[in-house]
Nucleic acid binder design. Structure first.
Length: 425
RNA sequence: GGAGAGGUGGCAGAGUGGUUGAAUGCGGCGGUCUUGAAAACCGUUGAGGGUUCACGCCCUCCGGGGGUUCGAAUCCCUCCCUCUCCGCCA
C-alpha cells in the first residue's frame, strides 16, 4: 500500500506510475475522500475534547452538590453527535481503503517503462561450459521423459485431484526431494539464511499483508469453513512472521529461507501453455525472504538474485536474468528480476524464479517496522523475496538438459549425494 | 468436541465505573557519585492519527469488534487466542 500522504503530495507521479503498470485507480476520488476524512476527524475530535473535559468536571460538580441534569442532557447530545461522526468516518475510510488497497506499488526509477513481456530487458545469460543451443539434437520433452522413465504421472494426478496436480513417482519423487534439500542446504550454508518451515494455510490478514488480497482473490484457493487460504507462495507466511512488529535495527537484515508447497488456482489459463509442469495448481518452491533497512534494499535485491543464480550455476543449468518492465511488474513489486531456465525441448526460456523488491509496500500493509538506534520514530522495513527456486519449472529444464542421447537422465553432480543414484533409466 | 481459567506498557504484575496512558518491580536510556565500573540516588522510557512553519495542542488505543453510560481497562454482547482437565486423533 502506498502512503496516503505521498499520494496527496504527488498525485501526478502516482497516476503515471499506475498507467505504466497497466493498472487503474481513481486517484482523484481517493484524494476527495481523504479530504473528507480529515474534515470529519477535526470535527469529531473537537467534540471529543469537549466531552472529555466536561466528563472530568462532573464528579466535582456532583460532589459540590450542584444540579447537573442540564449538563448531562447536553453531553448526551454531544455523545450522540460523536457517535454519528465516527460512523460517517468509518464509511468514508472504508470507501477510501477500497481504492487504496487496489493501488499498485510504484515502479523504481531504474525499471524500464514498457507494456508487455516483450519489453523486458535481458540483463545477462549464463550457461555451463560446453553448452550450445543445439537445434538439431532430438530432445524429449519432460512429459515424454517422465512417462518413459516412469517418474512423473500427470494422468493419475488428474484422477486423484484434477488436472494440474502432478505426481512424482519412484526416482522422480526422490529427485524432487533431493532438489529441495539441496537448495535449502545451499542457501543455509553458502548464503547465511535462517530456515523456516512455515504453515501452508494462512488467514486473511496475512494474505492482505503481502498484497495477495484483496486484488488477487480469484487466484487463491480458499477454505471457507475455517476462513483459511492455502498459500500461493511461502512469501506469505514468512513475510507475515513479523506482521505488527517493531524490530530492533540490530536485528536487520532478517534473511529467511523456507520450503513450501504452493497452491494456485490459475483461473483462466488453459491450453498449450498449461501442459505438464508448465502451469500447475500445486508445486514446490524454496523461497528466500528478506526484511532490510530501506537504504540497503536495492543492494539486497542484487544479492538475492545472485543467490538464486548460484543454485543454477551449481546445477549447471543454462539461464538468463530478465529485468521486468513496468507493464510486466506484479502488483506489489517496485522492481523485479526473473530467472528463466532453458528448455531445449520447448525451445524456449521458462520462468523459474522471480526476485522482487517491494520497498515498504508490504511493510506498510503488514505494519512491519524497525527502530533505529537512538531514534524515536519507527520506520517501515523494506521487504524482498525471491524464489530459490520453484522446482516444477526447474525440473523441466533439469530433465531435458540432463537427458542422454538414449533417453536416460544423468543426475546433476551436486544432487547425487542427496539422491543416492547417478542416473535414472 | 466438552468443562474451567485467563488475555493490561519490553517483561513481570496491580487496578472492577470518574483527571488511569495506566500503581509497583525488573529491564532500557540519561544524569549525580567514581580514576573507571558496580552499588546507591534522581530523572526518563509505547504506538497511531489530526492540527501547526515550528514549539505545542488535541484525539484514539489495556486481545479484536460492537454496545450501555455524561464518563469504561473496569459493566454487557460477540469473536479470536493462550493455559489446565476430559474426550477424540496422525
Amino acid at each position: 500500500m502506498l502512503d496516503i500522504k505521498f499520494i496527496r503530495e504527488n498525485p501526478e507521479l502516482v497516476k503515471q506510475a499506475i498507467a505504466n503498470k497497466n493498472e487503474k485507480a481513481d486517484i482523484d476520488k481517493l484524494l476527495e475522500l481523504d479530504e473528507q476524512r480529515r474534515k470529519i476527524i477535526v470535527e469529531a475530535e473537537e467534540l471529543k475534547a469537549k466531552k472529555n473535559k466536561v466528563s472530568a468536571q462532573i464528579p466535582q460538580l456532583k460532589k459540590a452538590g450542584e444540579d447537573i441534569s442540564g449538563l448531562l442532557a447536553e453531553m448526551k447530545q454531544v455523545s450522540d453527535e460523536v457517535t454519528a461522526l465516527d460512523k460517517k468516518l468509518r464509511e468514508v475510510e472504508e470507501e477510501l481503503n477500497q481504492i487504496l488497497y487496489f493501488i499498485p506499488n510504484m515502479p523504481h526509477e531504474s525499471v524500464p517503462v514498457g507494456k508487455t513481456a516483450d519489453d523486458n530487458v535481458v540483463v545477462r545469460e549464463w550457461a555451463p561450459e560446453g553448452f550450445s543451443f543445439d537445434e538439431d539434437k532430438k530432445f524429449l520433452n519432460h512429459i515424454e521423459l517422465g512417462k518413459k522413465l516412469n517418474i512423473l504421472d500427470f494422468e493419475r494426478g488428474a484422477k486423484v485431484s484434477g488436472s494440474g496436480f502432478p505426481v512424482y513417482i519412484g526416482k522422480g519423487a526422490t529427485l524432487e526431494r533431493a532438489l529441495i534439500n539441496f537448495m535449502l542446504d545451499y542457501h543455509l550454508n553458502e548464503h547465511n539464511y535462517t530456515e523456516v518451515f512455515p504453515p501452508f494455510l494462512v488467514n486473511k490478514e496475512s494474505m492482505r499483508g503481502t498484497g495477495q488480497l484483496p486484488k488477487m482473490a480469484e487466484d487463491m484457493y480458499y477454505i471457507e469453513k475455517d476462513e483459511l487460504y492455502p498459500i500461493p507462495t511461502a512469501e506469505v507466511p514468512i513475510t507475515n512472521l513479523h506482521r505488527n512488529e517493531i524490530l530492533n535495527e540490530s536485528e536487520l537484515p532478517k534473511q529467511y529461507v523456507g520450503y513450501s508447497a504452493c497452491f494456485r488456482r490459475e483461473a483462466g489459463s488453459y491450453g498449450k501453455e498449461a501442459r505438464g509442469f508448465l502451469r500447475v495448481h500445486q508445486f514446490n518452491k524454496v523461497e528466500m525472504v528478506k526484511m532490510v533497512k530501506p537504504e540497503t534494499s536495492y543492494d539486497e535485491l542484487e544479492k538475492i538474485v545472485n543467490d538464486a543464480e548460484d543454485i543454477l550455476k551449481a546445477l549447471k543449468i543454462p539461464y538468463r536474468v530478465l529485468l521486468l518492465c513496468t507493464g510486466d511488474l506484479s502488483f506489489a513489486a517496485a522492481k523485479c528480476y526473473d530467472l528463466e531456465t532453458w528448455s531445449p525441448a520447448e525451445n524456449k526460456w521458462l520462468e523459474a524464479s522471480s526476485c522482487s523488491n517491494f520497498e515498504d509496500f508490504q511493510a506498510r500493509r503488514a505494519k512491519i517496522r524497525f527502530k533505529r538506534e537512538g531514534e524515536k520514530k519507527p520506520e517501515f522495513v523494506h521487504t524482498l523475496n525471491g524464489s530459490g527456486l520453484a522446482t516444477s519449472r526447474l525440473m523441466v529444464s533439469l530433465l531435458e538438459n540432463y537427458q542422454t542421447g538414449d533417453g536416460k537422465i544423468q543426475v546433476p553432480e551436486v544432487l547425487q549425494r542427496y539422491t543416492g543414484f547417478q542416473t535414472i533409466e
